[in-house]
Design a protein around this nucleic acid. Structure first.
Length: 388
RNA sequence: GGAGGGGUAGCGAAGAGGCUAAACGCGGUUGACUGUAAAUCAAUUCCUUCGGGUUCGGCAGUUCGAAUCUGCCCCCCUCCA
């Protein structure tokens, strides 16, 4: 094993402090556990990464994230570029120092905003022109500009600029977009100057097997530090999402990290881990928490429901997070109904801790070759056909 | 005692003869949220066995038709004595 690791380090030409150490693979599935070494520490995989778009995981402090076992978080290039601007972040000494977060960080490139801000942008070969959602300013993002911004922000892992393709889209559209994303990936790679950041390529290709394959193969040829699967969990049926993962993952190198973007429901997380995914991120736990929905070992609950008014039990009796150790559903409901900030904090904390706990359990199960059992038991108890 | 203003659904508040079971806001209830334009958004909120039934302080009228017009009564507020 050690010799293999050395080989991986030697072969990595891009980021000198970055490599995946796979420590065990589940006997029955493709699930695997490992240690991802980054310039800001090592984190265990598979790992769920909370999203901190604006250099903050909404309502949570870095200490709280650390305590719940979040070993890596995201930030967003588009949003930080608009506010406060990457130069400010660079002046602060990089995003870690800026936000006082000591563990690994990853920046998304703005590729998702090409999708989510579709009404405010125009895609051309050279890049994407956004109309700022804040003040209407014209913002131009090319693959080279994006890498430049990400280098100033200074996360450990940076993402190539891509287009997150809407679903459904025609074969023709997906093909053209995917080919462009591949060209953009190359341009970003060529523009990269720092050697203390890992750069990931993003596999697009929509629901089409040949396009996913083509994209994965082309990106692998470029030898990125890791690969992600994009364009998923944007409203497509569940089986389509799993297919998109299958179509891409088999062409990704075994020894490089695989990152499924934007996935945060329990069944997707466990389903992805089963297929050999190492990292995933999602706003779901924090967003739905702020809106009163909580994930528990026994299913989703909506804390604003009247039935919790006099429920003096913990949110999730099987959860050991700060919220569940110290507060009752009745109190959490009260805080939510009264629109108290502390409520949103406690709920965000729980949901995030819950997903981290589930992935931690997954890692332990993989080490003991009982991942499938673990997954089925967790989902059975969760018992929600929608997978939330 | 005199002058004026007002009583509309849980609350606030529009409406001044038919298009009104009654705008809008709050409150209530339920739901959605997946690389965060999201502390946001949507539905619902008189009763109902879904046929219909009962509403705009009360009662009595005018009218084909009244929350809206008339009379009387009951409450509330402001100002003057």
């Amino acid at each position: 094993m050690e010799n293999e690791n050395l080989e991986i380090i030697k072969n990595n030409k891009r980021c000198k402090d970055f490599y995946l150490e796979i420590t065990h693979e589940d006997k029955e599935t493709h699930a695997r556990v490992g240690l991802l070494h980054t310039p800001h520490g090592v984190f265990e995989t598979p790992m769920f990464m909370p999203v901190g778009t604006l250099a903050t995981v909404k309502t949570l402090s870095p200490e709280e994230l650390y305590d719940m076992g979040a070993q890596v978080i995201l930030a967003n290039t588009y949003h930080l570029h608009l506010r406060p601007g990457e130069d400010i972040v660079a002046k602060a000494g990089g995003v870690h120092k800026f936000m006082n977060y000591k563990n690994a960080m990853l920046t998304d490139s703005g590729g998702f905003q090409v999708f989510s801000l579709a009404k405010k942008r125009d895609i051309k070969e050279e890049g994407v022109t956004f109309k700022s959602h804040l003040n209407g300013d014209k913002i131009f993002f090319s693959p080279e500009i994006v890498i430049g911004i990400e280098e100033k922000i200074g996360a450990d892992i940076i993402m190539s600029f891509d287009e997150c393709i809407p679903y459904p889209s025609s074969y023709e559209y997906v093909k053209n977009s995917t080919l462009r994303t591949i060209r953009w990936a190359k341009r970003g790679l060529d523009a990269k100057t720092r050697t203390d950041q890992a750069l990931f390529g993003i596999v697009q290709g929509g629901e089409f097997e040949d396009l996913r394959e083509m994209c994965a193969k082309e990106l692998v040829k470029m030898d990125f530090d890791g690969y992600s699967i994009g364009g998923t969990s944007i409203g497509e049926p569940k089986d389509v999402c799993y297919k998109m993962i299958d179509y891409a993952i088999k062409y990704l190198p075994y020894d490089k990290p695989r990152y499924l973007m934007g996935v945060g429901s329990l069944d997707y997380i466990l389903g992805a881990i089963e297929k050999g995914v190492d990292m995933m991120d999602c706003v779901l736990p924090t967003r739905i928490a702020r809106h009163g929905t909580l994930m528990t070992h026994n299913g989703r609950i909506n804390i604003k429901n009247t039935k919790y008014k006099e429920d003096f039990t913990p949110l999730d009796p099987e959860c050991n997070c700060y919220t569940c150790r110290n507060y009752t559903r009745a109190y959490l409901r009260h805080l939510y109904v009264a629109d108290e900030t502390f409520g949103k904090r406690l709920l965000s904390l729980h949901n995030t801790a819950f997903l981290l706990e589930i992935t931690k359990g997954a890692r332990e199960a993989i080490k003991e070759n009982r991942f499938k059992e673990y997954k089925e038991e967790v989902l059975r108890k969760y018992g929600d056909a929608r997978g939330f």
